[in-house]
Simulated assay, not measured.
Amino acid sequence: MNIFSKDEALTRLSLANPVHFLALGFGSGLAAKAPGTFGTLAAIPLYLIMAPLSLPWYLALTLLSVIAGFYICDKAAKDMGVHDHGAIVWDEIAGLLITMIAAPAGWVWLLVGFALFRFFDIIKPWPIRWLDAKVKGGFGIMIDDVLAGGFALACLQGLAYYLG
């Protein structure tokens, strides 16, 4: 059983290229099934490295991941010749980092944040779905996941407030 996609557009990318490596979520976006979920999973080690940082540092690195993501996703999409190819998962990585801003410590909160982000990323409530359909380029690839991360962040913080 092959876990990697055989998509022809992927042959235009190389994991040796740092931009492609990041766009593909360190290789996680090459999963044949549910690359967005695998990309979100790839964000967990990055989150665990960042979680002990002070809030200003966490926010700065998360903002950097979003801003860099505009270029990373745009470049990979252009190199592939496909807008928002499923293998491009840097947007999911940034989305989970947004979700986990000031999250309570612990694996339960990480799992809840993961589930909330995937829920909003998959369901795409308004205006996420509209932006996903209308906005192109690197900004378009990123913005739906930035908003999904924002929705998940609000829910996670609400749960932490009422349950914590």
Rank of each mutant, 00 (worst) to 15 (best):
M1Q: 03
M1F: 07
M1K: 13
M1V: 04
N2Y: 06
I3V: 07
F4N: 02
F4L: 13
K6T: 06
K6I: 06
D7H: 12
D7P: 00
A9T: 02
R12F: 05
L13W: 08
S14R: 03
L15K: 04
N17P: 02
N17W: 00
P18A: 08
V19T: 10
H20E: 11
F21T: 03
F21S: 06
L22R: 03
A23W: 04
L24C: 10
L24M: 12
L24W: 10
G25W: 14
F26M: 00
G27T: 05
G29V: 11
L30S: 01
A31Y: 04
A32Q: 11
A34Q: 10
A34S: 09
G39P: 02
G39F: 02
T40N: 05
L41Y: 01
A43W: 01
L46T: 12
L48F: 15
I49M: 06
I49K: 00
M50D: 12
P52A: 00
P52F: 15
L53Q: 07
S54A: 11
P56H: 10
P56E: 14
W57F: 13
W57S: 15
L59V: 13
L59A: 07
L59E: 05
A60D: 07
L63W: 13
L64K: 11
L64I: 15
S65C: 15
A68R: 14
G69N: 05
F70S: 09
D74R: 01
D74K: 05
D74M: 05
A76N: 08
A77Y: 13
A77N: 10
K78G: 15
M80R: 01
M80G: 01
M80Q: 12
H83L: 10
D84I: 03
H85R: 06
H85K: 08
A87T: 11
I88R: 00
I88H: 00
V89Y: 06
W90L: 00
W90H: 02
A94L: 05
A94E: 08
G95Y: 05
G95E: 11
L96W: 08
L96F: 14
L97W: 11
I98Y: 10
I98P: 04
I98D: 11
I101C: 05
P104Q: 05
V108A: 15
W109D: 01
W109A: 01
L111E: 11
L111C: 10
V112E: 09
F114I: 07
F114D: 05
F117T: 03
R118V: 06
R118E: 09
F119V: 02
F119A: 02
I122T: 04
I122A: 08
I122Q: 09
I123M: 14
K124A: 08
K124V: 14
K124C: 06
P125V: 13
P125M: 15
W126N: 09
W126M: 08
W130A: 13
L131Y: 13
D132K: 01
A133H: 12
K136C: 03
G137Q: 07
G138P: 04
G138L: 12
I141D: 07
I141M: 00
I141L: 00
I143M: 12
D145G: 02
D145T: 03
D145V: 11
A148G: 02
G150A: 15
A152Q: 08
A154I: 09
Q157L: 14
G158V: 05
L159E: 04
A160R: 04
L163W: 12
